[in-house]
Amino acid sequence: MSGASSRRHRTLAARARVEEGETDVAGGHTIDALGQFELHPVLGSLGESLRFSQSALLMVIASALILLLLYVGMRPRAIVPGRLQATAEVMYEFVHNMAVDQIGPEGKRFFPFVFTLFSFILFGNYLGLVPGSFTFTSHIVVTAGLALLVFVVGLLVALRSQGFGFFAHFMPEGAPVALAPLLVPIEILSYLSRPISLSVRLFANMMAGHVMFEMFAAFAIMLGGIHLIGPVLGIAPIAINIALMALELLVGGLQAYVFAILTCIYLREAVAH
């Protein structure tokens, strides 16, 4: 495995590309929109030998922040909650209501699972908006891992609560038997497409948002390099970036919500008889 050396090689190549670009583009900068998604080992030589990237570091920070919010937030146990306690309570109740509304009375069993997914993705999306940090949900490896987890849990729950009757769902009720060779593959494909759509949706939304940030930031620098009118023109992309930040705040929360509610819908179908 020469992962580290090839990665270093790639980073060097990227740097060389940037340096070349600096000589031939008038503004002095090229747009390296995807460079922000490269993984680098953090925490010095220890991180290097553990292959501990900034993505993993952000995951640890996100988990720690969630636990901290719930622990510190709920410590006062006040009847009239303070800000932190209100945040923790709103998050808890929001996911709890969603799980119980969508899955039904059995939703309480799956609430911890849904809450973990929701808060992890939400914190991942929002931590990525902090300048200089990294969005771990913008890597399809991460989102595919989460989606596969949902898929496998849904499959196991379905097999446990419905037994082999689960496979009867692949033949729509009331359809003529002669159409089975056509309908069953379609239903299976439709079922298998769930983890893909779940992971691609989150990954694509997060990545697209951060690519746009990078693009407009690069535009601001390029326009700013023009003499006299540069500083005036450069304001436009910065204004767009501020608007984008508002959009990304919406998208980040919404994607976590969509991921959680789809998990609930799949689990509801799994526990339904």
């Binding site: 494909l189 439709s190 497409s193 893909i196 759509s197 691609v200 919404l254």
Partner: peptide
């Protein structure tokens, strides 16, 4: 957010 990606992901599978 769901519709477009559902269409593509089934073709992908």
């Amino acid at each position: 957010f769901r519709v477009g990606i559902e269409l593509v992901s089934a073709v992908l599978v």
